[in-house]
């Protein structure tokens, strides 16, 4: 196994103080510390060439896991091996074999043109000039970077920057890539470009990808395997289809009606989630009623102006999973 995680626990200590002046004064004398278990016994294994989605709500422990795997966080307990190395102990050798992209921040140099950032990375990872040029010239058309190379990073749009960051993380040809919310804040076109690239990278070059995200569509488009984490524990780990059958078998239908009949929209095979003015949101199980039949019944009874069928948002899915 390329990545082995066994019984990972990470405790954070958060200093707390009581509110108000009295609390502040008391805090001078005695600090209260609260313990937060960001990871509470996480275990999984990932083989070379897998593309794994890692999802969960805010504060679930996704980033903590990725940071531990990337060697920048030392866990409180547990065992981690990535390509036979313990990330935080053999950090420098370890980070040479991984690529990391954090969606919320860039690893490029803010005031340098993209191509100069690439050149610096070549020196940092001690890549030979010929190898660097070969990898770079392969990545440029794949990510459509041709026109961005001479632009200073601070002038790039978020989508352009993310494409450059992806290229930057791969210049040293790492066999493993960690992506922490790579599509956050991107518009639809940029999301598609990023997804398409990740898919090809995994399929054509066998790069192992671990993708954390809030976007269930990312997972659907890319991952054959999904791990769901909440409250510092892995709730499920398996193929996407299994997860969907287990919890996300539900679909949501949102209908906009033209008149005041919104209050009457209902169906025996669906439950009303909420009504807001002319809009009604219904939940249904596609195994019990086909979406087309349900839509046909509702449009026959009400003047429907617009409708949308979607997956429940990831938070709802995970919240439900957590309750079970």
């Amino acid at each position: 196994m390329q990545i082995v995680v066994d019984g990972l626990v990470k405790l954070f200590h958060i200093a707390e103080r009581a509110p108000g002046t009295w609390g502040a004064l008391r805090g001078l004398v005695r600090r209260r510390r609260r313990e937060v278990r960001a990871l509470d016994g996480v275990s999984f294994q990932i083989a070379a060439g897998e593309l794994v989605g890692y999802i969960g709500p805010n504060g679930a422990g996704k980033s903590t896991t990725v940071k531990t795997l990337a060697g920048i966080l030392v866990p409180s307990q547990g065992r981690v091996e990535v390509m036979g190395r313990v990330p935080w102990k053999q950090r420098i050798d370890h980070v040479r074999d991984i690529g990391v992209v954090f969606g919320q921040r860039t690893q490029l140099w803010w005031d340098l043109p993209v191509v100069e950032s690439f050149e610096l990375l070549r020196h940092i990872y001690r890549v030979g000039a010929a190898d660097h040029a070969r990898v770079r010239d392969e990545l440029i058309p794949l990510l459509d970077l041709g026109r961005l190379l001479d632009v200073p990073v601070r002038q790039l749009s978020l989508g352009q920057r993310m494409r450059c960051d992806l290229a930057a993380s791969l210049l040293h040809a790492p066999p493993i890539l960690f992506l922490d919310e790579p599509t956050i804040g991107l518009d639809a076109a940029a999301k598609l470009a990023v997804r398409d690239f990740i898919k090809r990278l995994n399929r054509d070059r066998g790069v192992t990808v671990i993708l954390t995200t809030h976007d269930l569509d990312d997972v659907e488009a890319l991952c054959s395997r999904v791990m769901v984490i909440a409250g510092g524990r892995i709730l499920t780990d398996g193929p996407l289809a299994a997860l969907r059958e287990q919890v996300a078998g539900e679909r949501w239908l949102t209908v906009d009606v033209d008149d005041a009949s919104a209050g009457e929209v209902a169906d025996p095979d669906a439950t009303v989630l909420r009504r807001e003015g002319h809009r009604v949101c219904l939940a249904f199980d596609p195994r019990r009623v086909s979406p087309s039949a349900l839509i046909a019944r509702i449009t026959a009874r009400h003047p429907v102006r617009d409708l949308l069928v979607e997956n429940p948002p990831i938070e709802t899915v995970v919240a439900r999973l957590y309750q079970e």
């Binding site: 920048i72 966080l73 420098i92 980070v95 990391v100 921040r105 690893q107």
Partner: peptide
Amino acid sequence: GNVAYELCRPLD
């Protein structure tokens, strides 16, 4: 707190 990200590079 981003100082940790500096550790992603194979540098001292």
